[in-house]
Amino acid sequence: MQEVRDPELPGRLLTLERDAFVPLLRSRPDTDFALPAAACPGWTVRDVLAHCSAALMRVVEGRFEKGVFSPESNDRDIAERAGWTNARVVDELERGMTEAGPVLARGDGRLDVLALGEWVHAGDVREAWGAPGAYAGAGLPDALALLARFTRQKEHVPLHADLDDVDEPLHLGAVAASGPPARYLGDAATLIRLCAGRPVTPGTYELAGVREAELNVFG
């Protein structure tokens, strides 16, 4: 049975995150934007934000040339914004988080995962700043729903997740795989970290039937 897509899901996630994240960005001094983003080696917080705003504006403006979203393309996007003020980068990010949702809703779903990537990168910035809510917050239910759909589309490793802070189990990955799925027990934010290839705290979760690296959907 073909899965029914919710076309409003990516935009809803972006809007929820915009309303929480942009005020945080505007409250921080310029020096905080130069801090390293440990989850994205070699990038500063500003680099992460420039990458995020550029990716969203590509969606808004329909600019998808060959090699888009490759590491080289990402580096060019960041370099193009090198002369911008931090405030201008945040302004572009806010516009992208506002306008990309309707564009994604009209699409065929192949770019929906960009909303999840943006939400994860917002967690990367919070992590760099020691701010609360990294990989959690109001958008978490929509992020989990988008993660589940993306992993099913990619026929990723099947995983049954019993989440400490979510009532219903979450099923990730291929639905027609042979044998029982791998199992995860822990909180939702840690599962997001694992699936996004971010560092986790050992001993805070249980994982059986799969290695941590196999859960990375962006690797």
Rank of each mutant, 00 (worst) to 15 (best):
residue 1 M to C: 08
residue 2 Q to L: 15
residue 4 V to C: 06
residue 10 P to L: 03
residue 12 R to W: 02
residue 20 A to L: 07
residue 21 F to P: 00
residue 25 L to I: 07
residue 36 P to Y: 12
residue 37 A to K: 04
residue 37 A to D: 03
residue 38 A to I: 08
residue 41 P to F: 05
residue 41 P to N: 13
residue 41 P to H: 11
residue 42 G to S: 10
residue 44 T to C: 07
residue 50 A to L: 07
residue 53 S to E: 13
residue 53 S to C: 09
residue 55 A to R: 03
residue 58 R to H: 07
residue 65 E to Y: 01
residue 66 K to D: 14
residue 68 V to N: 11
residue 76 R to K: 07
residue 77 D to M: 15
residue 85 T to Q: 09
residue 87 A to P: 02
residue 94 E to M: 11
residue 94 E to L: 07
residue 96 G to L: 03
residue 100 A to S: 11
residue 102 P to M: 13
residue 103 V to K: 14
residue 103 V to A: 06
residue 105 A to F: 10
residue 109 G to V: 09
residue 115 A to E: 01
residue 118 E to M: 14
residue 120 V to K: 02
residue 121 H to D: 14
residue 121 H to K: 07
residue 122 A to C: 14
residue 129 W to E: 08
residue 130 G to D: 10
residue 134 A to G: 01
residue 135 Y to W: 15
residue 137 G to H: 04
residue 139 G to A: 12
residue 139 G to D: 04
residue 143 A to M: 04
residue 144 L to S: 04
residue 145 A to N: 00
residue 147 L to R: 01
residue 150 F to Y: 05
residue 152 R to M: 01
residue 153 Q to S: 06
residue 155 E to K: 12
residue 156 H to Q: 01
residue 156 H to M: 01
residue 163 L to Y: 05
residue 169 P to M: 07
residue 169 P to V: 03
residue 171 H to C: 09
residue 173 G to T: 08
residue 181 P to H: 11
residue 182 A to E: 10
residue 185 L to R: 11
residue 185 L to K: 09
residue 187 D to P: 04
residue 194 L to E: 04
residue 199 P to W: 09
residue 202 P to Q: 08
residue 203 G to L: 01
residue 210 V to D: 02
residue 212 E to L: 08
residue 212 E to H: 03
residue 214 E to C: 02
residue 215 L to G: 04
residue 217 V to S: 13
residue 219 G to S: 11
